[in-house]
Write a protein that binds this DNA or RNA. Structure first.
Lengths: 105, 105
DNA sequence: GTATCGTACAACCAAATGGTTGTAGATCTG
DNA sequence: CAGATCTACAACCATTTGGTTGTACGATAC
């Protein structure tokens, strides 16, 4: 994953409204206006949040009639989790080294 | 974890320089100026990045003589991973529901 | 004691972010 | 067809972000 991909992913997660959208569209389908009705902000603002999530592969949009259906996209979440798993692995290596030092001493 | 905590965490991860700092200080100790020497930006800029990471509990600072030693802090990483695990759980529930529907049909 | 080093912090700047309103194009409904 | 609905997008605004330089101050070295 490129730096730019990771930037987009974590940036997308760094907003409570967007995290809420991700949760909702994972369990059910929503049109953009359906989502907009849930939040105390304009339709355009929600539209922008959805666009941020789409660019981060956390959500997909599909046209259905005049509506745009938003659904969760597992791809982005998987990428984010794999990246954090790499950091976790670095921690485990470090713990391993410390254990080795203690074993030697 | 509060929304503000999550915001700070993911915001902190949403920058390649900061992610690199986290990796480095997890495997070894660095002073702030030691870190600053690694990047093509000013000392003050790196100092700000470290401050962002510290607020997000991804790093700790400890004064040693005139230096400030930066170390990785597992707490922030754990919080981030747990939060992503919650999203993963929502996905698994969804997959379960779909399987149920298929089993019924 | 006097440089020098490492840090903190303020002030500033350009660009990005998160919000707004307004306009316009598609699609459905009556 | 006319009107309502859903979406897209531009323009604008305030705040935050990521960077800079400059100043000040405690700790170290000579």
């Amino acid at each position: 994953m490129s730096d730019a991909d990771a930037d987009r992913l974590f940036q997308a997660f760094a907003d409570a409204t967007r995290r809420d959208i991700v949760r909702r569209v994972t369990v059910a389908e929503y049109s953009v206006s359906g989502l907009a009705a849930l939040y105390a902000m304009s339709f355009a603002a929600v539209q922008k949040h959805v666009a941020v999530l789409e660019r981060a592969s956390l959500v997909t949009k599909e046209k259905r009639g005049r509506e745009q259906i938003v659904r969760g996209n597992h791809e982005g979440l998987q990428k984010a989790r794999r990246l954090l798993d790499e950091y976790e692995a670095i921690w485990r290596q470090r713990v391993g080294r410390i254990a080795d030092i203690l074993a030697e001493g």
